[in-house]
Amino acid sequence: METPRLERSWLDWTADPSGTSAAPHLQAFRVLILLHLCVQAWAWALRPLDHPYTFPPLAIHGCAVALTLAAAVASFGSERWGRMACLASLPIVAFELAWVFPATANHHYLSLLILGLCGLFDLRREGEDQLLLQGLRWVAVIVFFWAGAQKALHGLYFRGEFLSWAVAVGGERWAALFGWLLPGAELTRLQELPQNVGSGPWRAAGLVVPLVSNAVWVGEIVLAVGMLVVRIRVVAVLLALGLVYAIQLAPREFMFALLYTNLLLLFLPGEPNRRLLPVFALAYALLVGAVAGVPGLEGLVKQAGL
């Protein structure tokens, strides 16, 4: 008798070899996504965007309330209601993203995509939890791979041009955190450069800046591929988390960092998304506080908000 050949598709490269149920993990993930979207909507309601992206106040407050309800339903309701909350949130989030187009941030598109996937799969059905887990892990891999590949394609990382520019004129936070990479005289030279046509070169002398700069894009690509290899997956994910937060320390794009952390944690054993739910909730609460102008928290967000 012929043994049936097991079909192994590329989708399974992110599968969990243990094959244990991922449903509790994914339920927590879903709550976090809705919490993320609810915080984003409240941020837009509390600190209106500049023209031409200013939401009508009633519309954005309505979105924020609806997404808060959806997050509450996903947190305390049954599995069925959690999925329904994702599906019901889709048009609200799509409206928000369309309103801010073309200034829509990448993490907004990403959260809409993830929300759609969470609404597509029913975790009560056999195998759908694994399928959703594999899909979300692939999303994490693709995002990290392209983040590195795009830096190489645009060509401002090979000799540290972007990093030189960012440290010199990208704002106080860049200079404070990464200024030590440049020799003092070189930092002064770059800071004094005009920004008109022909000014430059925006390249710092020495080896440190090019080394760090190249390590970033190479690291992103290598770690993305590493996430597909079961044996080194955990190490790759931990290093990727370190890289994300190292990059985000200066620009403070914590909304992206939290969303991406939620994705990366799906690779780790022990259901960290569920265990860390209170930590995420606290982080999101701090971000809302920062946007609302709570003294002492302003430094957590960019001047423009989330």
Partner: peptide
């Protein structure tokens, strides 16, 4: 930086 290409921080 925009249009879902993940090229944030690739260029100023």
């Amino acid at each position: 930086w925009k249009l879902f290409g993940f090229a944030m921080y690739s260029v100023p």
